[in-house]
Simulated assay, not measured.
Amino acid sequence: MVEIRAAAGKDAGAIAQVHVASWRTTYAGIVPEAYLASLKEAEREVSWREWLTLDVDVFVAELEGEVVGFVSGGAIREPVEGFDAELFAIYLLREAQRRGIGTALLGRLAGSLKARGFRSMMAWVLEDNSSGGFYSRSGGVRVASKEMDVGGVMLPVVAYGWKDLEAIWKGVGAV
């Protein structure tokens, strides 16, 4: 059984492990291999320890006591018209994918952001990310595009937007 819970400082190492492992599997062939190889869990753990002290919502998914995924979000960082919140990151270990865990994480974040007074949410996603269908299936619609530097290479990214957080939250059974 999967448990979705608010992340705490003690989770920084597990989140870093999921973050690095997910980048290496999700972005292989998209992001420069040298960049993926350079990712260090210890460095990400330091970043996550700091990130967990900020005004952001972070939730982890635990399966049999092990963190297998996470989601983070908060106030939008770069204005996109019609949206006030942003899904910063959602990552799952490969073996935890296609089991409804990502949908549960998305729903938990949407419910939390709605409770904080946000109405809508968007997420920047690498255009070549094979997980793009996840955003569409969850009701996200492409609303913008740009290029982003990842590992010294400019890559196309698209913004998926949800105009109504409550629709996401209710759509996944108010996790």
Score class of each variant (00 low, 15 high):
Gly161Pro: 12
Ala110Gly: 10
Thr53Ala: 00
Lys163Phe: 02
Lys40Gly: 13
Phe83Thr: 02
Ala144Thr: 09
Ser130Asn: 11
Gly161Phe: 05
Pro79Lys: 06
Trp124Gln: 12
Ala85Asn: 05
Val157Lys: 06
Ile90Lys: 07
Glu166Val: 08
Thr53Ser: 00
Thr26Leu: 12
Phe59Lys: 02
Gly173Arg: 02
Ala85Phe: 08
Arg44Pro: 00
Asp149Arg: 09
Gly140Cys: 10
Gly100Pro: 04
Gly139Asn: 12
Glu78Leu: 07
Gly74Asp: 01
Ala6Gly: 13
Val2Leu: 10
Tyr135Val: 10
Leu105Val: 09
Val46Gln: 11
Ile4Met: 02
Glu66Asn: 11
Phe134Ile: 04
Met148Glu: 14
Glu127Trp: 05
Arg142Asn: 14
Gly152Phe: 04
Ala75Val: 11
Trp23Gln: 08
Val158Arg: 06
Ile168Val: 15
Glu127Tyr: 09
Leu54His: 08
Val2Ser: 12
Ser72Gly: 14
Lys40Pro: 12
Lys146Val: 03
Leu109Ser: 11
Val68Lys: 01
Asp149Pro: 12
Gln97Val: 04
Ala89His: 04
Asp57Pro: 03
Val157Ser: 05
Leu36Ile: 08
Arg44Glu: 06
Ala8Gly: 14
Ala21Ile: 00
Gly171Ala: 07
Gly111Glu: 04
Trp124Tyr: 06
Gly132Ser: 12
Thr53Arg: 02
Ser112Asp: 07
Ala21Asp: 13
Leu105Cys: 11
Glu127Thr: 08
Val56Pro: 05
Glu86Val: 07
Thr103Gln: 14
Ala37Met: 12
Phe70Glu: 08
Ile30Tyr: 05
Leu87Cys: 13
Glu86His: 02
Ala8Leu: 12
Ser22Val: 03
Gly161Trp: 09
Gly117Asn: 08
Pro79Ser: 06
